[in-house]
Design a protein around this nucleic acid. Structure first.
Lengths: 241, 241
DNA sequence: CGGCTGCTTGAATACCTTCAATTCATGTGG
DNA sequence: CCACATGAATTGAAGGTATTCAAGCAGCCG
């Protein structure tokens, strides 16, 4: 059995290098932000909405505790999880320039987000060019992150796709100072499958096979990484069918 | 045979509503931009690079004539076309905040782009809050466009995917005042396939079948749309396998 | 004209999905 | 406190869709 999920600082430096860069504002800026902006904090239980498609867009949101999933819906009702957001990452930036939010954001666990009123952000940005720069950078990073996943989903078969997902989650945990070798997946297999453009049975099978290969140990949502290089080799080399 | 590719203004208003919104700066801003910025114009023949991954990032680029493809490459060499850019659309925004461009951009035909030096853009943005707003909006629109395609590629089977692509291209043509019912695809089947996460044979078969259904006429890169609603029904309703 | 590249089409295969059954964890009510 | 209902995850077998491999055709440029 797998136990003792630690939050110890990762000692493996290479984790950070391979990650799909998650867009975020650094801790330094946050201090400035809190001074400059009327930040309000909101807590959400698992399953609760941070915002819903169609609600008036007024703020962007910085995840402070927990994690959220971003869900896009087409006009005819097809849905897909297009991103997961963890501490330090931004939600809502995709809706800038619109009157209403363009997607749903749902907490995966007990979570907290800081609302940054968009007009206030804009006003602050005029006064603080560095903030301006940071916003551009965050938005651009978001685009690069999406493009990286488009590339991944478009060129990798199911199993390497799942491997790449685990590597990404692990790297993001490491960035936050948590263990990259042992973590809890906060999303269901269904959410993972949606994000990876697979069926949940396929995700399940892929995880089982990665465990058979001794690359990971997995028990429901608890994952222990046994062979990072094995995972990497699978995520990088295997082609799509 | 299909002939007489016109550039007449589209008279079908519904074309514009369904499109995957392409990020762009409106014509109004362009006038301001030209006054404020040291814009330089560059021409490219088909196959030439607007910029390459690794080159120092200095400017964002507004497509003024022709069209380009955006190609992302993974560390291990897998490649994918992640976007196509037409007149009025921006390239290079994904590289904001980096020292070097993050992807390749290649002309699909004789094309011209305006280089907007990024530092100058930033300085102008400080003086002109509207420009600031426009930049945010353009970046956010880019994110939404990517998300929409992630959703499409993740939830639609091959044939509806191709149908959705044709609808998108048609809508973007309409927006530019060209015919939405008759146009030339500027990219190869290989590029389309890469963008749609399919093989070029599959794209070819899908196009042939759409022609069998009398939704379109197609001859190599020349496409004539016969039944928009048929295409729409296919793009919206059919689920992924 | 010849060689080349891009596109199309066919047949066989492989991979993921679909359908179905089982196990496991959780929480609710008797 | 246990029984039971519920939802999530796993696993097996059958099937379908896109891919792979292969061949042929058409346009284009030297």
């Amino acid at each position: 059995m797998i136990a003792n999920v630690s939050q110890s600082t990762s000692t493996h430096p290479s984790w950070t290098s391979q990650a799909v860069q998650p867009p975020s504002l650094s801790a330094i800026d946050l201090e400035a932000l809190r001074r400059e902006l009327p930040v309000t904090r909101r807590k959400h239980a698992a399953g609760q909405y941070l915002y819903r498609s169609g609600q008036p867009f007024r703020a962007i949101h910085l995840v402070h505790v927990g994690s959220y999933k971003i869900c896009d819906t087409s006009t005819d009702g097809r849905e897909k999880v297009t991103a997961f957001k963890m501490r330090g990452e931004l939600a809502g930036v995709e809706s800038i320039g619109l009157d209403a939010y363009a997607c749903d954001v749902i907490a995966l666990e007990d979570s907290e987000a800081w609302d940054l009123p968009y007009p206030a952000v804009m006003k602050a940005a005029v006064r603080i060019p560095e903030l301006q720069e940071q916003i551009h950078t965050a938005l651009a990073a978001e685009i690069r992150c999406d493009r990286t996943w488009m590339l991944l989903l478009g060129t990798l078969a199911a199993e390497p796709r799942v491997a790449a997902f685990l590597i990404d989650i692990a790297a993001r945990h490491a960035r936050l100072g948590y263990s990259a070798k042992h973590f809890i997946l906060r999303m269901s297999r269904l959410d993972m499958a949606s994000f990876l453009a697979l069926k949940h049975e396929t995700v399940s099978r892929a995880l089982s096979h990665l465990a058979d290969l001794r690359f990971i140990e997995v028990q429901r949502r608890e994952v222990r990484v046994l062979d990072v290089d094995g995972l990497r080799a699978m995520a990088c080399c295997a082609q799509a069918a």
